[in-house]
Amino acid sequence: MNTHATQAPRNSVWVPVSGLTIFAIASGYLMSLLPLTLESHQLPTNAASWLASVYYLGLLFGAMLIEPVINKIGHRLSFVSFITVLTVSVALMMVNHTLTSWLLSRFVAGVAVAGVFVVIESWLLIGDSKEERAKNLGLYMTSLYGGTTLGQFGIGLIGTTGALPFIVIICLLAMATLPAMAGKGAQPKVEHHVSLSLRQILGLSKPAMVGCMVSGVVMGSIYGLLPLALQGNTTNDDRIGVLMAVTVLGGMVIQPIIGKVSCRISKSVLLALMSLLGVFAMGIYLIDQSYSIQIVSLALLGMSAFALYPIAITLACDGLASASIVSATQVMLFCYSVGSALGPLAANRFMESQYGLMGFFFAVLLSTSVYMLIASLRTKSTVVAQ
């Protein structure tokens, strides 16, 4: 049992939101940049999947270590510290172009980003009611995805070669620390925080855990390999940037809809429906790969992929006391990280196949929709039996 920040006062919300938004712009640009800049730095293109996987392995590792840091120095300084570590990792990639150095840098970046996520989620997502939690979750996701969408345009505006992209990302990350450094009185209130026991963790919703893991599989592959897959259909960096931005924009647009619908229908059913939306999106992409169809299908894929995590995490937190939310959130981030670490490696096997990365998304999301439908039927049977 620990003391932990679990509720942010209203006047401090601008600090994590503004910092998160700038961080997301830098992170979105960096994630799409890396697969496209490998060749210009004399690195093999198949290293994209390894860079993505080692990053998410760092995310997984970091998800288990962040809470003591926050307890020790607080949310505000933790945010600044994790962003600083991430900045150093990007600077190392800029000056050292060996694959070993890049893999190490991406692992360290994953640990730092796990810290950013846990800090922001515990700063914003803890509320006294489901309505407040949903509102803060929407604010969190909109800031994250909105910033990530803007970051995609860096591919066309700034480019993918040389040191300039890394310099821009470093500057953006430095700017992301300014709100936290300026808002000295914005530290969340410190309340009682209860860490979940192993038995309680195992008792969390299984569809929620699967949903977070599948979200990691799909999201890790989108950020790690989708730019490379799109490059196979077009050599125009501007178009790749637009298609990546459309994917993330689809995820941002769906957030307020998800927030309203999730209160009215079963979340496991909603997870199944969003997975089926992704199946439909990949189906039309595989049939017709014209630019206009790519835009539509990738926007729908974004809606599907980016909806899974918020739905799953709210499903996991349903019925939990406010003091246990942070611990549950860390468990869900761990599940997401496992999927994110394994996803690009599994997806890489599909890259050389006839259906490529889109076929991988189709298979994963179809399997998930079937599982979620079965899980929802089992839940209904249990309720009826009781």
Rank of each mutant, 00 (worst) to 15 (best):
A134N: 12
L342G: 06
G251D: 00
M332K: 11
Q231C: 00
V248G: 05
V69K: 14
G138S: 15
D128H: 14
S122P: 11
K206R: 11
V326W: 01
G151T: 03
L178P: 08
Q289W: 01
A134Q: 07
L38I: 07
I222N: 15
P9F: 06
E132H: 09
G203L: 09
Y336P: 00
V118L: 09
L124R: 15
W50P: 08
N136L: 07
E352W: 03
R133P: 00
L204E: 02
L34M: 10
I66T: 03
A281E: 12
A299R: 00
I222R: 13
R106K: 13
G28D: 03
V88L: 14
Q187W: 05
G302S: 04
S275F: 02
K206G: 00
Y145A: 11
R378A: 10
K135S: 05
F61G: 08
S27W: 02
S268E: 11
M282L: 06
Y355G: 00
V108D: 03
A341F: 13
A112C: 11
C212T: 02
A346R: 09
Y56L: 14
A109C: 09
I22P: 06
M372H: 05
L99T: 08
L150P: 08
T382N: 14
S268L: 06
G319W: 00
M209H: 04
L103D: 04
I126L: 14
M358Y: 08
M219R: 04
M351P: 07
A112N: 12
A174Q: 13
S340Y: 00
L276H: 07
T87P: 08
K135Y: 01
P344L: 05
P207F: 03
D128A: 13
G251A: 05
H193P: 00
G151K: 11
Q289K: 15
L357W: 02
A363M: 11
I126Q: 12
I201K: 15
Y29T: 05
V116I: 12
V119D: 04
R76A: 04
G283A: 10
V90C: 15
L308W: 00
S297G: 01
S340C: 10
I22R: 08
T368I: 01
N71T: 10
L157G: 06
T247G: 02
L286T: 08
G319I: 03
S340E: 04
I126Y: 10
V364W: 05
L173D: 06
I293S: 08
I66Y: 00
S324F: 04
F82H: 15
L320T: 10
A323K: 14
V384S: 11
G183N: 10
G224N: 13
F107A: 12
A328R: 08
S268G: 05
L373T: 03
M213I: 01
L125Y: 02
T161P: 03
I66C: 05
M219G: 02
F61C: 12
A328V: 04
M219V: 11
V168A: 06
C317S: 15
V85Q: 06
G356M: 05
I73R: 14
R264W: 01
S290E: 07
L342E: 01
V217Q: 02
F79P: 13
Y336K: 07
G62D: 01
A363S: 12
V331G: 02
E191Y: 00
